[in-house]
Design a protein around this nucleic acid. Sequence first.
DNA 1: TCGAAAATATCACAGCTGTGATACAACGGA
DNA 2: TCCGTTGTATCACAGCTGTGATATTTTCGA
Lengths: 201, 201
Amino acid sequence: MDPAERRREVVDALFRVVIRDGLERASLRTVAAEARLNVGSVRHYFATHEELKRFAMRSMIDRVGSRLHARAEAVGDAGTLTREERKEVAASLFAELLPLDEARRAEVTVFLDFITAARTDPSLQDLAREAATGARALARRVLTWLELPAGVDVELECERLTALLDGLGMNAVLYPELIGGESCLEILRTHLDTLIPPPPT
Amino acid sequence: MDPAERRREVVDALFRVVIRDGLERASLRTVAAEARLNVGSVRHYFATHEELKRFAMRSMIDRVGSRLHARAEAVGDAGTLTREERKEVAASLFAELLPLDEARRAEVTVFLDFITAARTDPSLQDLAREAATGARALARRVLTWLELPAGVDVELECERLTALLDGLGMNAVLYPELIGGESCLEILRTHLDTLIPPPPT
DNA sequence: TCGAAAATATCACAGCTGTGATACAACGGA
DNA sequence: TCCGTTGTATCACAGCTGTGATATTTTCGA
């Protein structure tokens, strides 16, 4: 079997364990069992536990990052869109970072565990920082593309938006009974409306 | 020595371990060592590890909750304040939830570890839910007290504000080099200004 | 002063962890 | 066919974990 695919299987098994029991329960043995392998086989592809975790976190970042990049490229020609249309495009782009379906919920859940673990795990810190700066770069790019009204501090709004997205994702993952995916999307749209007032009806 | 104070000492030791190494490293042995005790002494006050963690999380919630409650009570007579003054009161109240100094940074750090752990730890879930609903109740109360302009959805703004506060706190704790306490406060003030437009100068 | 209660301390045990070492099987080119 | 590479599997070891049981010390009121 293709080694790359085996690695992917192991990483998927790790994700399932993290979603079910949290990252701290994702030991070599539990992940191997989830992947229907034994520790020896897992360690044939990942020399150490640390390497497995780093590879998994990188896979997650790359997956989300490439998806966002593809979406951002697809709307390269902005001149033909009205402000309202661009707002809708921006909303659906940022929505990729919200737990709106099971796949994205899984991503946000795993990602939250990884970045909180990175606070005290030096081997994950560079990846967490990379993801954080990447999210800010995306937000900055989209906000400038939206051509905010004069007098608006783009850097501040960039930080406010990323914080809002992180907060929404975290709350929707930790308290699904308090706030669902639909509310997240509605709040995101409202937020963009406060940045660019909608035309009066 | 007063048993209540001993418990507090142990809990403080646990907080220090969590801040330094994360909640998953806060074993009975590491906490006991941090408190300059042995496991037997710690277990004399907390029968099980689970009981210790629950007590610590409850202490944290109570501490922050009572501080917020005291501040909210202190400004009970709202009629004498202008809208701008009330906005400033609201900002300083919500600022209690942001890592603006070392004490609050420690609180947010520990709290973040607790609520993420609660996702997969049934023994902490009720406390996490209590904290989440409490934060929303506070935000709802303050937002109605601010008398937002007509047409503003208070429930939605309540959720948007709590998500923003959570996101700001999380980012400031996880990426202190990307966003500091001052930026959090500035963003919070900006957010309140978008809810209640400031008078033109 | 005595003695019970509270507090502190130590040991042992089973279970889990990462990792090193080693063995066994499968496969694919010379 | 042979052999080296790749993949799979198993064992052992030290270290950490929570917890039960037990021992020792300290405290403090009758």
